[in-house]
Nucleic acid binder design. Structure first.
Lengths: 131, 131
DNA sequence: GCAATTATACGATAAGTTTCGTACTTGTGC
DNA sequence: GCACAAGTACGAAACTTATCGTATAATTGC
């Protein structure tokens, strides 16, 4: 997959994908409810038809598919979570860190809490990379 | 700085900021030339007035300032590179990794080449975090 | 059976970003 | 001095994304 052939989901689309990845195939109502529950207090409620429209557009783009055998359509993510994350990370490194993955790692590592287990996991990965 | 009070630069604005951060205060012509030199082959050339307009808008937003004592105005970044990166990383972790900084670190680390020196630097940081 | 509820479809609008044409101004070369 | 090159200002169009109103269809409760 080249950089240019990867179509980046918008922030709203990504938010919906996150829910579908985490909770599995879901109806619009469920997704919309979650979005509103988790929103920052200062942001206003997203209307049901807004989420519906977004998910319909995602269907056209091939980001999701849906089961229409029941009246309440069930939407399912068609793009893979890890692959999408990887694409987004690559692009992010490019635009925000001028291509330096290690600068991103240092920045993310240095500014966020990490448990002993997480640090051990990272150390293990580094050891493997040094072989 | 709270999440909501941080105004995220657009991708075009970030591209311009990167140039100003890297090369220091620069005129519009210089920035526009660099953008076009570095662009992907499939993307078309960005007109001079387009870049000019973007930088004028960035001026209004307070992202840059300019020296107008000479005819050719010199633009300078007003926002700090590291601070901006930190803000963007935080937001990115939220939207793309559901808040897990460590998942981002693992992903970025595991999928990009790293020199021995870079790995050593990361190990040093981890050691410091373990104290 | 039918009123009320809940779902989808879809056009229109709003809002933000990017693009550029055109007018105007300032400096340069000869 | 003046034609030409190079700069800025700015309005407006083109695109993209997000939002919602309204119409319509299916389902449910009683």
């Amino acid at each position: 997959m080249t950089k240019s052939s990867f179509s980046k989901p918008t922030e709203s689309e990504l938010q919906i994908l996150q829910i579908l990845w985490q909770d599995g195939p879901s109806p619009v109502r469920y997704v919309n409810d979650l979005i509103n529950e988790k929103r920052d207090t200062d942001k206003k409620i997203v209307g049901y038809t807004t989420t519906l429209k977004l998910m319909q557009l995602m269907l056209e783009k091939g980001l999701v598919e849906r089961d229409t055998t029941t009246r309440t359509h069930i939407y399912k993510a068609l793009v893979d979570e890890t692959t999408t994350q990887q694409n987004l990370v690559d692009k992010f490194i490019d635009t925000t860190f001028r291509g330096s993955a290690m600068k991103l790692v240092m920045q993310a590592l240095g500014n966020h809490e990490a448990s002993k287990e997480e640090l051990d996991e990272i150390k293990k990965l580094i050891a493997k990379m040094e072989e």
